[in-house]
């Protein structure tokens, strides 16, 4: 391929032919110059649209079950992480207590 071919490919700009809907939406939703139109329309952002329109390959719950959830447990990415850290500790303690108690129960039943 010559330089000339590449140049022709790059300009003019037709937009990628097989672009997926999410790629388009994240560019055309309020990304240009914000101009006040006469008719006020509140468009949802890409995240809300994604959730509402089920552009899904799989549900969020399915992903969590598969363990793909690190963005939720990273303090830098999520305020949930801080809360979860406490909850985790709490749960671990409760589970440990449960294990000890059930051991005691077993001992008692055995008597």
């Amino acid at each position: 391929m010559t330089d000339l071919d590449l140049e022709r490919e790059a300009c003019p700009i037709p937009g990628p032919p097989n672009s997926n809907l999410a790629d388009i939406l994240e560019r055309i939703l309020d990304k240009g110059i914000v101009i006040a139109g006469d008719i006020k329309i509140d468009l949802l952002d890409i995240e809300l649209l994604t959730i509402r329109l089920r552009l899904f390959v799989a549900s969020v719950d399915t992903a969590k079950k598969a363990g793909i959830d690190w963005w939720e447990t990273d303090p830098a990415l999520s305020s949930r992480a801080a809360r979860d850290a406490l909850q985790n500790e709490n749960r671990e303690l409760r589970e440990r207590l449960e294990a000890i108690e059930s051991r005691n129960d077993d001992t008692r039943t055995a008597r």
Partner: peptide, 23 residues
């Protein structure tokens, strides 16, 4: 997207956001 891209293929273009409407 198609209209914006078609215009940009011919001229220097500033896209406006989806749903910009006037009376």
């Amino acid at each position: 997207h198609h209209v914006v891209s078609a215009a940009a293929a011919l001229w220097r273009t500033v896209p406006l956001p989806l749903a910009t409407l006037y009376h």
